[in-house]
Design a protein around this nucleic acid. Sequence first.
DNA 1: CGCAATTACATCGTGCACAACTTAATCGGG
DNA 2: CCCGATTAAGTTGTGCACGATGTAATTGCG
Lengths: 144, 144
Amino acid sequence: MDDEFTLELDDQLCFALYAASRVITARYRPLLDDLGLTYPQYLVLLVLWERGAVPVKDLGAALQLDYGTLSPLLKRLEANGLVRRERRPEDERSVIVALTDDGVALRERAAAVPPVIGDAMGLSKEQTAQLRGLLRTLTDNVSR
Amino acid sequence: MDDEFTLELDDQLCFALYAASRVITARYRPLLDDLGLTYPQYLVLLVLWERGAVPVKDLGAALQLDYGTLSPLLKRLEANGLVRRERRPEDERSVIVALTDDGVALRERAAAVPPVIGDAMGLSKEQTAQLRGLLRTLTDNVSR
DNA sequence: CGCAATTACATCGTGCACAACTTAATCGGG
DNA sequence: CCCGATTAAGTTGTGCACGATGTAATTGCG
C-alpha cells in the first residue's frame, strides 16, 4: 500500500512548491511595496544590479521569462523611472535595458530586503544549501 | 567574505523556488491541456476528489487561495461542466462546490498525471521526502 | 546580390493571484 | 427584538505568465 503516485493533495510535491513560492512572494510584498516594486520587477533589477545593462533576451534567459512577460514589465519599470530602454545601434533588433540613476540608487535600499526574508525563512545554513540544491536538481531534471 | 544575504540572483533561495514552481507547472501544462484543465483548476479538483462537496471557504483554506482567485476559477469549471455550485439552505451565505458526473469521471484520466510528473522530477524517494519536509518547514516559518 | 529563414522584440488574449471594495446573510449583545 | 459586527462570497483593477501572432532587422544560402 505504498502507492508512490496518488491524487492526494498533501502528497504532491508540486503543491508544496506552489504554496511555498506564493508564501515567499507574499512575504516580499510589503518590503517591495516600500520600494515601489513587484517581485518580478525586483528580480529584473537583481540582474541589472549584478550585470549592468543587458539586452531583453539576456534578462529572459536569466529569469526564464519570455517577451510577453518582460516587455510590459520593462515598460512599467521605465515609466517608474528606474530603467531606460534603447535600441542597440549595431543591431536594431536588440533592446538594451539599462538602469537610470534612480535605478542604481535603489540598490542600497534593496540591500535591506534579503536579510529580512532570510530570517523569516528560518532555515539553517545547511538546510538552505540542501534546499537550494534539491530545487536546482529538480528544475534541471524537469526542464530537460 | 561569507556574506550570508546578498543581492545576487543565484544566491536567492526565493528565485530557485520561483523558477522551480514555474518549471513544474509548465511540465503539467500539456498533460492538463488534454484534460481541459489549468494547473490551479487541477488543484481544486484534487481537493474535491479527495473530500467531496465542500464550501468555497474550505477550498480556499486547503489551497491558500482567496475568493478573488477562486470565484472566477470555479465559474469556469462550472461552465466546463465539471462542477456545480449551490447555496447551502441552512446558511445562504455559503456556496457548496460539488463535482458533476463529468467531474467525477475525470478522476480516472487524471490518475495518469502524477506518475508522469513524478518521473520527470527524477528525485529519489529520500530526496522527495526531504524536499517536501524542507518546503513545509519553510512555508510554516514564513507564513507565521 | 536576392530573398527566404532566423532573430529580437512587441502585442493580444486568457487565466491566475491578490488587494480593495461591495453585498447579502447570519450572529450576538443589550 | 434590534442593530452593529462578523462572515461568506463576489466584483474590480493591476500585474504577472504564457501561448499565439505580428513585425522589423539581420543573416545566410544559392
